[in-house]
Design a protein around this nucleic acid. Sequence first.
DNA 1: GCTTACTGTGTATGGCATTCATAGTTTTAC
DNA 2: GTAAAACTATGAATGCCATACACAGTAAGC
Lengths: 249, 249
Amino acid sequence: MAQERSLPPVVQRMWGREPTPRRGPRPRLDLATITAAAIEIADAEGLAAVSMGSVASRVGVAATALYRYVDSKEDLLTAMADAVAPEPPDPAGMHWRDYLALWVRAHRDLILQHAWVLSITVYAPPMGPRRLLWLDRAIAALAGTGLDDGEKINVASTLTGYALTDAALEHTAKSGFPELDGSGIEGASDYGEVLAEVLDPEAYPALSVAVRAGAFSGAEGWVEDADFRFGLDLLLDGVEQLIARRQGR
Amino acid sequence: MAQERSLPPVVQRMWGREPTPRRGPRPRLDLATITAAAIEIADAEGLAAVSMGSVASRVGVAATALYRYVDSKEDLLTAMADAVAPEPPDPAGMHWRDYLALWVRAHRDLILQHAWVLSITVYAPPMGPRRLLWLDRAIAALAGTGLDDGEKINVASTLTGYALTDAALEHTAKSGFPELDGSGIEGASDYGEVLAEVLDPEAYPALSVAVRAGAFSGAEGWVEDADFRFGLDLLLDGVEQLIARRQGR
DNA sequence: GCTTACTGTGTATGGCATTCATAGTTTTAC
DNA sequence: GTAAAACTATGAATGCCATACACAGTAAGC
């Protein structure tokens, strides 16, 4: 009755609850070391280089041995996406807004440092121990703001989404537009230039004005990461207003 | 000199500029019909069923024939992600806030109706004709707000990101948490229940309080799509404040 | 009519995730 | 102390898939 529902094997292993077999030889591995090996490969050679074979040979077993720890490659990937998250920053003593700004930035940087995360999941509710640790800190930072638990979680969720999409944008911008490789187009302003030739001013009235006015070219001369802060402030302003509403009256 | 930079083949085809060969047999296909076929398959059987073979046989050619129109499968996928976008709603005569709310919702619904989009790209700068059409309308809706072109694009970009991540969340919530299939866990509240067993209150102080207080269980009894509106209002409040700042002084 | 520039086809290759039967290993039961 | 039971890692086999390549057919240009 009480055990009717239980977490599936992989998730249990993500939480460090590896089943310890009562008979037979001791398992030579655990999910953590497998995941760590996979992350190393992904960091070094990209996600495409992560195959059951490559991961297995890195930990010194045959490819099929991994299926003792993981039901499928997908399981391994989700475990990777969780395990890659480091310790979140400590909110102790910080104003919620300062902390959340820091939190989102750290989140984004984390993703940029392991850009392969972008290819795994768009965004799923956090389930693993590491991601939930980040969620915990965000909730903690919002203590005393008057928001209820659900609202806090919603705020964190929205911010996570922003970190993710901003990281994605920044990544594609940095690594060049994937569709434009070998076209001689190197950055946003070049793209704007070429785009201007194709854009029909009748079908795209507002956009073609903006493009011809150089809206894309401007993106080149960024002051640090103005774009990131732009969206972040948008969101935090929204949160601040919500908090004021909850507190004010 | 002027032609030094040019859009790569696929992108040109996405814009309807198919090269017309001067000799030899007429091409039997074009990118649009190939893409449409691929989208039909993805809608019906999921993205996994989209292979060069399946798409080719649906349009009545051999698998390898597709490489006359597309350099790689990835090209086909990005073409799909663009072509799937329908006509955007018309902003004429609407207040910017009303329109953008509508716009984001339509965007999210679009993704939910073709959830496979989530597996293709997290979020890349729009390059195809359909996505840019949406961008155009968002910019148009912000006319007269006092924002400059770059800011308008940034707003649209942030909102797109929100549509995407919210769709992703909603999708995983609807289709059940992928990692939890066959575990007897059916929804968020069930997950909260099971989670409570694993969560160490010392390591996750804020979160375990929230979970035990039923923060996840509450998510079940949604009024329509309260969560979606929550984040949306957060963002639009932020935009509104920005506009006020640009106008006010 | 002959060349030229194409198109679609068929075959072949190599990589990949995953299945399955098997041999080996440790613990429990008697 | 011995045998069965439970479990591990392995190696070979399967089937799918993206893609490269050489080729045969076709339509325009000369």
